[in-house]
Design a protein around this nucleic acid. Structure first.
Lengths: 224, 224
DNA sequence: TCAAAAGTGTTTTAATTACACCCATGC
DNA sequence: GCATGGGTGTAATTAAAACACTTTTGA
């Protein structure tokens, strides 16, 4: 049993002079497109991991929390404020960044790709949605791990709560919703059981309108 | 829609000169004692929040990850290595610490208070186990929030997985296990249903031995 | 011997799963 | 008109919840 004195006082109170690190917020932005769950990646044109794909991120400044920083990143990227985000995990491995030590706190957020076109920015850096089942090989840093961890948390949250709203347009068919669930959970669901379960949750409202262009003429639903 | 150029390059690559912050690992250490779930708090004798109760923590150094740092804290505190820990959340509010900016990444860990007496260290700093339902008023920083978040995660993990091992001695009665579950989940469980469920998980082994000193003569079980 | 806790099964209810036919629409 | 997808209900299974008496032991 070691003496308590040697280290504990240093530990329990924060010293005024101590090691400091840069902290970034990196965001795993999920979208749902063509029946697939997708992740937004940006292509680095400079620095280490040049030409590698990354999830977007930004450095936390002195006057902002990591949540504010994450919002700043999204605002710069897609011009969108007040997107709901969930904190996933902090990554602190020593050699994450080749030039200096960087600690990253990751978040995930959900948006609709259709509502946030990003093409006009491609002269600066390429921005692209990738299917989760079709990620590029050259993902930089430990961002593949962050994507996996984010997807795991999203999956878990979907099973418990119910957070599909941001991923679908205002009006959607039950099959679109089911496909979304299936692509997040990575498993097939029985159509009738899914409908029964969702409907008896009493959170959806049948608008009465019918989606055109699809055989069968499905009803459009919206959140209550 | 704003231009992408203004901020994004700054954001997507980490600059070599950027704001840096001290990072600590704070640990919500849970124990199970006298039929109650407890948390270990230390009493600050110096600095801001003097005489306030805190969960133990330590500053991350240049050569360690936050997990290594958390392990270091536990090693200094209770002389124990290789304790399993779960990352809970990162706390980055600007005024968490009155003297300087400190970002904290919190963990929870589970131990048996009986096996880790800490009395001999009380001349340095008071260390005490508090019932979760009986926490002191003067908890410093945002540590009450950290404790609540940690308990929420522990509860959730107990419901999904099953992680009681570290909180009980090698051999225990089913009622001790049930009381542990009840104190974590904060709800009463039916004795017969609990036993049925736990036993059919097939993770426990009846040692055949009987615990003395308790009316009814309960069997002692252990993990398989 | 009496009070307190241990041990044990069954019944009821709710939730989950499996499964098949007819209808509406687009092509 | 035909192929595709939409809409619907019931039966079977499994899981969860409710519930009471006898046995063991300590005091």
């Amino acid at each position: 049993m070691r003496s308590f004195k040697d280290k504990s006082l240093e530990n329990i109170q924060v010293q005024l002079v101590s090691y400091e690190a840069s902290i970034t917020a990196d965001i795993c932005l999920f979208g749902f497109q063509d029946g697939h769950l997708k992740v937004l990646l940006v292509n680095r044109t400079v620095g280490p991991f040049k030409n590698c794909w990354l999830i977007p991120g930004g450095i936390m400044e002195a006057d902002e929390t990591i949540e504010q920083c994450a919002n700043k990143v999204l605002k710069c990227l897609i011009g969108l404020e007040h997107v709901h985000m969930s904190q996933v995990k902090a990554y602190t491995n020593l050699n994450r960044h080749p030039l200096k030590r960087v600690v990253t706190i990751s978040f995930y957020a959900l948006i609709q790709p259709e509502n946030h076109p990003m093409e006009q920015k491609m002269n600066v850096t390429e921005i692209k949605w990738f299917g989760l089942d079709n990620l590029p090989d050259n993902i930089g840093f430990d961002h593949l791990e962050i994507i996996k961890d984010s997807h795991t948390l999203l999956k878990q949250n979907l099973k418990n709560n119910l957070i599909f709203g941001e991923l679908l347009p205002e009006k959607f068919t039950l099959n679109e919703l089911q496909t979304l669930y299936e692509s997040i959970l990575e498993e097939e669901l029985d159509r009738r059981n899914f409908r029964k379960k969702i409907l008896q949750m009493d959170i959806l409202e049948n608008t009465g309108a019918i989606k055109k262009g699809i055989k069968g003429g499905p009803y459009l639903f919206k959140k209550k």
